[in-house]
């Protein structure tokens, strides 16, 4: 039975072209909590993010709910409007679409059924968020993700997160392609937003490095499409010390 305030999966299974990837994942993320899902390459981490977000390329069974509402019956945009936000590992470039125009479009979609806000009003909103993220306003005139560095892409994702005010945030390998300084900044921003907005976070990652900054409340280990271990930050430290093989060996024993 689904709780009123949680992002929950029960025995979530996914497959692509008949090939199973997730083989039964049960998770419960409450507002304000940070859950880290760790696992080696091919364990199904990205699939978990994208299947939850509503990527129709994944065939999904089991249950997933957001604050008691069934997610699996919603398409990808409905899930976003229900309060789910996926930060992409590599968001695609959309040439010719300015960041300003794009952000205003998605901001107004999230506001519906309230009427869209004016360009001038939006400008105030977005500049306030960009100020807090210490982003240059010139960013707004660029084309979405076109020619962005790894760090710029991640910050653009974070800006969208700030504007859309989600209830739960899925971070897909947000540490990939970032140096340690960029990692610290992005983690700081996400922690600040979580504190202000109180959203729940699921971060999937291969490396424990980002968790030093993000300080998860729960750490789970995903292997062959199943969560084989759950614990606290100490589990992440152990993975970093001993590697996945040891943990996986213990878990599957």
């Amino acid at each position: 039975m689904a709780w009123k305030n949680e992002l929950a999966t029960r025995n979530l299974r996914t497959s692509v072209g008949g090939k199973p990837i997730l083989r039964g994942v049960s998770l419960s993320i409450r507002p304000g909590e940070i859950h880290a899902v760790m696992g080696p390459n091919g364990s199904g981490k990205s699939t978990l993010c994208h299947a939850l977000a509503g990527d129709p390329n994944f065939k999904t069974e089991g249950t997933a709910s957001l604050d008691g509402k069934d997610l699996l019956g919603m398409d990808i945009s409905e899930r976003s409007r229900a309060g789910l936000f996926l930060s992409y590992q590599t968001p695609p470039a959309v040439p010719g679409v300015s960041v300003a125009n794009y952000l205003r479009t998605i901001y107004n979609a999230a506001r519906a059924p309230k009427p869209p806000i004016s360009i001038a009003e939006f400008e105030r909103v977005v500049k306030k968020e960009m100020g807090a993220l210490r982003m240059d306003e010139a960013f707004l005139d660029r084309y979405l993700n076109e020619g962005f560095s790894g760090g710029e892409k991640k910050r653009c994702e974070t800006l969208q997160m700030a504007l859309l005010q989600p209830k739960y945030v899925l971070l897909d390998e947000i540490d990939s392609g970032l140096d340690v300084d960029a990692l610290r900044i992005i983690s700081h921003d996400i922690l600040r937003l979580r504190k202000e907005r109180g959203f729940g976070v699921m971060v999937v990652t291969h490396y424990a490095r980002i968790l030093k900054f993000l300080k998860p409340d729960f750490v789970h280990v995903l292997h062959m499409g199943k969560l084989i271990r759950s614990g606290n930050a100490a589990l992440a430290a152990r993975i970093e010390r001993e590697g996945y093989d040891k943990i996986i060996g213990d878990g599957s024993r």
Partner: peptide, 9 residues
């Protein structure tokens, strides 16, 4: 898909 994941049709 990316654009739709931000809540637009």
């Amino acid at each position: 898909l990316y654009l739709r994941s931000r809540g637009i049709s």
